[in-house]
Design a protein around this nucleic acid. Structure first.
Lengths: 325, 325
DNA sequence: CTGTTAGCGCGTTCAT
DNA sequence: ATGAACGCGCTAACAG
């Protein structure tokens, strides 16, 4: 391994001078700068970031914890975060927590032990107590975390109400809801919104559990439709489950949207891969990732504020699983 | 930040002793061990992995470069790799290269600068010249890299021929192929296999370009089917494009599999999310990830061999886009 | 069984 | 404008 010493020897200067040209600070004569740069190239020298981090306590790395990389919602987020951080010379490392608290804690520990400069987390399971002795900046993304942790989210409750109201406007009389896991706050809010909207319209709530899971959602809806054949609309708690709902309809040979309307939530690509394409509440996923990353970088630079909570709007994308007006 | 010195002072021993209990090596009296462990807990001490890496030149971190995290093929690989490496106390950091050479090189550099212990890469663009002065162990996954770089792959050519042969067996007379990008070796091999199999059966090749992309593949196939309405089968270069093909069929109101059979390649979950479910050549994705990770750990421990090339078989999964016999 | 000490590679005072 | 020297937190001889 070639170190700063080797470069210094090669260029016939001291390590301090090499360090100066490396970091582009302090005075250094043009001639010596050229000499040093020549030596660096010649020896193919790469600064050792570990040593640098040890001294600076900064690594130019940030971590991004996502709960489930197989959910197509996240890859888009990843790309957005990378785009922002790379531009600022940071390396982003992705950590897949598998919705598993132990893994999340393991990653948080590893990040601290490695002087990671900051983290973006998407998590339900993590509590404030887990991060309050974490001494690096954190931004919560997609899921609200705590007043004291800045976040980038959408207004799940109101946006979900909009979705249900839209279905009612389009003439659905008996709308069912496929809910996600209760322990995921977003999922609970969407369910509550559905229930409230139905109640205010004097309509009964019909709910089955899809667990944010395609197959489970398909099965749950089939059972539900057998029980209540008059259901004419399904509001799914996320797009993955909406895809499951579509499969259920296809299994039961129901025509979508004539016999059954379906509305999803999230705006992931899957909704466009199926036929008919699914109407959904689209989140500005890329934009959200970008915003979270920008906030994190500001926090790292000490410029950010620590109780910033950005809430984005969603957009209703009318496609083929709901009737045209 | 609480350091090993603080622990030593608190426990009234030397830093060396603390280091010994930390690393569980060398002799240390039971009583002192207890004392030290108490101090560690009391002060909430976490060893600084940066300092440790600086000395050891090992970080207990490995990197995993994937070309496109939005392709559902990769998340499964990620999970497999994580499962293996976590068990061995390694932290796996994911790097999304976006099929972009510059990003790949950036990540490789970052890995070296941070004493990452090894890397798994899925790449087409990276050449031997880019990694031959990388001094950490590397394993190529999914895509063959070079004789000197151990790899875990499947036999794209022969497995693709099997797929085409299967379609011929099931009575397809005019089979078209949706190919992926030429610069991806796997994609080229699958195309060649198609062409060879067709030629040997005295059949003409009909090829359109789907670019491994859903929408492009849908559009390309629609155009092709307009031109050649007698096509009765489509072999897609991967599952993503097979999903696109299914959408194209639906747009043109073709019945699948009666009017048109479709066979994909990879075995990703998407093929089961659509209706009808897609027949595909399933790769043992999880198994492949596991194998690659295991190989990498062996290499890191100096136990591995550097020209190990594991080739897995695929499995034909007969579903609903091909006719039953 | 335990403590002292010398680096790992780098960045930064403080002199010059 | 440049160099000498110290220290970041930790591990591994070596000595006792």
């Amino acid at each position: 391994m070639v170190t700063i010493k080797d470069v210094a020897r090669e260029a016939q200067v001291s390590v301090a001078t090499v360090s100066r040209v490396l970091n582009n600070q302090g005075y250094v004569h043009e001639d010596t700068r050229v000499k040093v740069e020549g030596a660096i190239k010649h020896l193919q020298y790469r600064p050792n970031n570990v040593a640098r981090s040890l001294f600076k306590k900064r690594s130019k790395m940030i971590g991004f914890i996502v709960p489930d990389i197989t959910n197509p919602y996240f890859p888009q987020l990843v790309r957005a975060v990378e785009d922002v951080t790379n531009k600022a010379q940071y390396t982003t490392f992705l950590c897949n927590s598998d919705e598993n608290l132990k893994k999340e804690l393991m990653y948080l520990e590893s990040m601290q032990e490695n002087h990671i400069d900051g983290a973006i987390i998407v998590s339900n399971t993590l509590q404030l107590q887990h991060v309050d002795n974490v001494n690096i900046p954190i931004v919560a993304l997609d899921r609200f975390f705590h007043d004291r942790i800045p976040s980038v989210t959408i207004d799940n409750y109101n946006e979900a109400r909009k979705a249900v109201r839209y279905m009612l406007d389009r003439g659905c009389k008996r709308i069912a809801h496929i809910k996600g896991p209760e322990y995921i706050e977003n999922s609970k809010l969407r369910q509550m919104a559905y229930e409230d909207e139905m109640r205010e319209n004097m309509l009964p709530s019909i709910i089955c559990n899809g667990e944010y899971h395609l197959k489970k959602s398909e099965k749950a809806l089939i059972d539900l439709l057998m029980l209540y054949p008059t259901i004419d609309g399904v509001f799914a708690g996320n797009d993955v489950m909406a895809v499951g709902a579509l499969k259920a309809a296809s299994r039961l040979e129901l025509k979508v949207p004539d016999d059954l309307s379906i509305v999803g939530f999230d705006g992931i690509e899957w909704t466009e891969t199926v036929s008919p394409e699914i109407t959904t509440m689209e989140q500005p996923i890329y934009e959200m990732g970008k915003r979270a990353a920008t906030m994190l970088l500001e926090l790292i630079d000490g410029k950010g504020i620590n109780d910033d909570h950005v809430v984005y709007d969603t957009k209703l994308i009318e496609r083929e699983t709901t009737k045209k007006q």
